[in-house]
């Protein structure tokens, strides 16, 4: 089995996937990009409250992993969770409503950008404390194991989380009890503004898995088919009681860490090199190499998404805002 595919390596082949599922993947990654671009506009325009952490450039990690899951499976996410939410099947409308603080949002306006989630769709509200979702996901997996349920949890975290104590504690317990959790490290090279080279002696994050006694794999995170294939293997192992698995997905954040961050700490040549490996452009090339996919098909997908987002924005801007009575509700069950 190939365990490492560096960025820029040949994309995984699309030959064994059918046209409809491939176009479905494409639709999801384009949806995330267009959603994020629209949110960025709304935020900079000043009409959307709060702060934002966006994932332009990282769409393939969310879509590849979530596409390997069943509806009954769960994900945990981070403060950068818009893409995970869309990939797990949350609707554009419930996310936009949440971003506008409306009661019709996925968390009734009480979560916001960093805590997107919907348990009915298998997504825990984003855990915005770095690595805080790792012990939580291990505990969810422990519950599945004790309840003899077949579900798995995919736990998203960034390269920064690897330095946290919660990573070590959660991963170690997931390992000793063979828990069904896919540990998904989206390595975008920066924890906020700090490059991994400054904070890791060994920057190959998947190596950590061996020290806990389980399998880790580094994957080209900008190749949605490579991510999907690796996630399918990992999910199958977890479902068979052979978890956990650590997937290190190499990717890159095209936009700022948050808000108006201009990314001056990302060197120009590095940005250009990664922009040339953009997950959407690359996947489009793979699709267009097929005889049964035309540029017009991809254009139609984008047009459909843009229309959906436009409608959702209009709705979200007039969605019901909370009343003051809502302030003290939902503290206790």
């Amino acid at each position: 089995m190939k365990t490492t595919s560096a960025p820029g390596a040949a994309p995984a082949t699309a030959t064994h996937r059918d046209r409809a599922s491939l176009l479905g993947l494409y639709e999801r990654i384009v949806l995330i990009r267009e959603f994020e671009e629209r949110v960025k506009f709304l935020f900079l325009e000043g009409t959307m409250p709060g702060t934002i952490h966006q994932c332009q450039g990282q769409e393939a990690t969310a879509v590849g992993v979530c596409s390997a899951l069943q509806p009954g499976d769960y994900i945990t996410s981070t403060f950068r969770g818009h893409g995970h939410a869309l990939a797990k099947g949350l609707s554009v409308q419930e996310l936009l409503d949440e971003l506008f603080g409306a009661t019709t949002g996925c968390c009734k306006g009480k979560g916001g950008s960093m805590h997107m989630g919907n348990m009915d769709k298998g997504m825990v509200p984003g855990i915005a404390i770095v690595a805080g979702g790792i012990p939580l996901a291990a505990g969810m997996a422990l519950a599945f194991k004790m309840q003899k349920k077949p579900q798995v949890v995919a736990c998203f975290f960034g390269d920064g989380a690897v330095a946290e104590g919660a990573f070590h504690e959660g991963v170690n317990m997931a390992a000793i009890w063979n828990l069904p959790v896919v540990l998904v490290c989206e390595n975008n090279l920066y924890g906020a503004s700090t490059h991994i080279g400054k904070v890791m002696k060994n920057p190959k994050i998947s190596d950590r898995a061996a020290s806990y006694g389980f399998r880790g794999e580094t994957v080209d995170g900008n190749d949605v088919l490579a991510v999907l294939a690796a996630a399918e293997r990992a999910v199958a192992e977890c479902r068979a009681g052979k978890g956990p698995v650590l997937l290190e997905l190499l990717t890159y954040r095209r936009t700022g860490h948050s808000r108006r961050d201009a990314c001056h700490y990302q060197p120009k040549d590095e940005r250009e090199a990664w922009f040339a490996r953009d997950p959407i452009t690359r996947f489009a090339e793979v699709l267009l190499a097929r005889p049964d996919v035309k540029q017009a098909d991809l254009d139609a997908i984008k047009a459909k998404i843009d229309a959906e987002i436009q409608t959702a924005v209009v709705n979200a801007q007039k969605a019901p805002q909370p009343t003051l009575a809502n302030l003290t509700e939902d503290v206790f069950a």
């Binding site: 012990p135 505990g139 997996a141 519950a143 919660a166 070590h168 504690e169 170690n172 317990m173």
Partner: peptide
């Protein structure tokens, strides 16, 4: 058997696991 779970010395970790398990219907 199997319901008194001894953990490593990892208070942050096992507390988080209790939270996660509780969210999934267990009562730790």
């Amino acid at each position: 058997p199997g319901r008194i779970i001894d953990t490593p010395i990892a208070e942050l970790g096992f507390t988080g696991m209790a939270v996660g398990a509780a969210m999934m219907g267990m009562r730790p």
